[in-house]
Design a protein around this nucleic acid. Structure first.
Lengths: 207, 207
DNA sequence: ATTTAGTTTAACCATTTGGTTAACAAAAGT
DNA sequence: ACTTTTGTTAACCAAATGGTTAAACTAAAT
């Protein structure tokens, strides 16, 4: 007889959501099987359809939840009211912390967005909640005019910041394999990046 | 009488490869349908199996070909015999050029690697052809000791270089949507990055 | 104790999908 | 000429997969 352990405490719906999250994020939407999710949740396949009508509905639920962990961090830097360098430090640190917990996140989100950009991007920012980079870009412009940082295209600097922060998590398997790096070493490197990246950026633009 | 060139049209095998490449890279392996590929190639589905036994064989053929466009560029920087800054400029420029032609490439390759790292990474570098970053990392060490660049962990600098170069192509749909950027504008930005990225890196580390 | 509403399951169904077969056409040998 | 090999197709098949159904179980409400 199969003993249920910790999961006994979780509601069926939560068990499904946890299972779906695991299967979808590791295999991707197309390769994920409803049966896999049912097995992972330790329930019957029909029960999936009882709680979530169909695969799309279940996927959208998971995707939206995951995307909300991914994107608000990008927004943050646009909304925040703070000096430039402080903003950069905060953005990188918070992002790296989140991704260290969920390293699968960026590739999952970016990949599904790539497969159907309109569908997902509109789903994430239904109406007026879309990120507005203008303020941040203006802040960069203003710092350049003040002469506190060297001349650089604000859009390029923004891209650099995001690239430096997110990419290593997208390419984790490649890095760890090519650089013969155990997972623990990779995680240490990511922790270091919380100071490394801001240092690198600021050293490049500070006058 | 004017002689016609032989094979003005593509051979069936080439039509299949082109079609498979398109379908696999846009939809991913799991979501790609053999029928889609047959349609795209304008042939019967059975003919696919005549040329390539099954889906896995066909996919591996495509994946290997694409991965070979993606990875040698990473190797290049490790093999090349040149001054550091020149190396950086060359790496970025060549990589950006390649990705501008095949923007789908990084996400496709990284995504499939993520789904089964051992299988693909071993398939790409069968035995002794694996990239060896040691020389490049040593060069960085040596430049730091000489005092031509500031103190920085070589591994972090390597990651920064790769991240800055590749990430924008992985996140293209996100960038163009969030920053309300037409495709042409994005492409222009990428062209600019060929000088922007080396400048950014060198400004950060040069002493 | 009986009803009722929600939960769960085994069995089933329809469609999709990768893959095969057999027939046939076009080249290539002989 | 005719035989063999290679290229191509329509029809078919079995397995996989998403989804449904009806019945059974459970726990609370009446």
């Amino acid at each position: 007889m199969v003993k249920k352990k910790k999961q006994q405490t979780l509601s069926t719906e939560d068990k499904i959501l946890a299972a779906a999250r695991k299967v979808f994020t590791t295999k991707g939407k197309a390769a994920a099987r409803m049966q896999d999710i049912a097995d992972e949740a330790g329930i019957n396949k029909a029960l999936l359809h009882y709680y979530f009508r169909d695969k799309n509905k279940l996927f959208d639920t998971i995707f939206l939840a995951e995307a909300k962990k991914f994107f608000p961090r990008i927004n943050m830097i646009f909304e925040l009211e703070a000096p430039l360098f402080e903003k950069i430090e905060k953005f990188v640190a918070e992002y790296v912390d989140e991704m260290r917990i969920n390293p699968y996140l960026p590739l999952f989100v970016l990949n599904e967005i790539n497969h159907d950009p309109k569908r997902f991007l509109q789903k994430i920012w239904g109406k007026g909640t879309m990120p507005k980079p203008e303020k941040f870009l203006q802040q960069l412009d203003s710092e350049i005019k003040k002469g506190t940082i060297r001349k650089i295209q604000p859009m390029q600097l923004l891209m650099n910041m995001i690239s430096l922060t997110i990419f290593p998590f997208v390419a984790e398997p490649m890095f760890t394999y090519v650089l013969r790096m155990p997972d623990k070493k990779f995680d240490e490197l990511m922790e270091q990046r919380k100071v490394e990246i801001p240092q690198f950026i600021i050293a490049s633009i500070k006058k």
